[in-house]
């Protein structure tokens, strides 16, 4: 819903530089390993039930021989005015006041999937099954992130556990959070440095600076969702 403003400083945002992005999908895997996103197997992926909190939208442009893919990594846009939130009958899709992001309260979710229907970004993923992770592979599961059961909707959280951990470290050391101190898993992995994360409320942060770039645009901005993810158009054939 509408952004709550109580003088809270944080406003996390992400910039995706499509000119740097190669479409290698390292972000997809890094996210899955950090957030305990289950692998679902061949049949489920074929049925469209694969779970990817971040996915690379690959669109073919042009015709042979001038054909090329345009890659666009899409994750939850953490809308300031999120279409998923008002439709949830159990208030499982909520807006966090502190981080200004969209969160999913898994134990409220009853699996109506209204939120996914209403999300224009395909960012919400539904658990059609319980995760099947045989022992001892469950050993690598991240203890900071809940494991979701069947019938529960899940989505990108900007790695909120890392934001919280960063904030706690800073507060223990009695200092403000430094720019670049918190990196979600996708940003940390990105081999070509296409993803930049930070606090948009700080005009001097790298992410704020980059979001002012003349190549910037927001995904489906016309819907009035006020996304916190900013894309920078690719150069050359990707529309620079």
């Amino acid at each position: 819903m509408a952004e709550v403003s109580k003088g809270i400083a944080e406003k996390w945002g992400l910039v995706v530089d499509q000119d740097r992005c190669t479409g290698c999908n390292a972000c997809v895997v890094a996210c899955s390993m950090e957030n305990n996103v289950p692998f679902t197997g061949e049949d489920n992926v074929a049925f469209g039930r694969g779970t990817y909190w971040i996915y690379n939208k690959r669109m073919w442009e042009g015709a042979y021989p001038e054909v090329a893919p345009a890659f666009q990594p899409v994750m939850c846009q953490q809308c300031g005015s999120a279409p998923c939130e008002p439709v949830c009958p159990t208030f499982a899709a909520v807006h966090s006041e502190e981080e200004q992001i969209n969160l999913q309260i898994y134990n409220r979710c009853i699996g109506t999937r209204y939120c996914a229907n209403n999300c224009p970004y395909h960012a919400r993923q539904f658990n059609f099954q319980d995760p099947d992770i045989p022992e001892p592979m469950n050993s690598y599961l991240n203890p900071d992130v809940t494991i979701r059961r069947r019938g529960v909707m899940e989505k990108c959280t900007f790695c909120v556990q890392r934001i919280v951990a960063g904030r706690q470290t800073a507060s223990a050391e009695d200092r403000p959070l430094r720019d670049g101190e918190v990196t979600p898993a996708c940003v940390a992995a990105c081999p070509s440095g296409a993803l930049v994360f930070g606090d948009l409320s700080d005009p001097s942060s790298r992410v704020s600076q980059m979001a002012q770039n003349e190549r910037q645009y927001k995904l489906m901005d016309e819907l009035g969702t006020r996304p916190k993810v900013t894309y920078l158009k690719g150069g050359g054939r990707n529309g620079g």
């Binding site: 290698c24 999908n25 390292a26 997809v28 895997v29 890094a30 390993m33 950090e34 001892p136 592979m137 469950n138 050993s139 690598y140 599961l141 991240n142 203890p143 898993a185 940390a188 992995a189 990105c190 081999p191 070509s192 440095g193």
Partner: peptide, 29 residues
């Protein structure tokens, strides 16, 4: 072993890592 990330000081990958390196725990476990 929970998560694997690149070593920011390493002169080769400077903190970055590809999908193969990130999933090495799935080999361990």
């Amino acid at each position: 072993a929970i998560t694997i990330e690149g070593n920011p000081q390493h002169p080769l990958n400077r903190g970055r890592l590809c999908a193969r390196g990130i999933t090495a725990q799935q080999g361990l476990y």
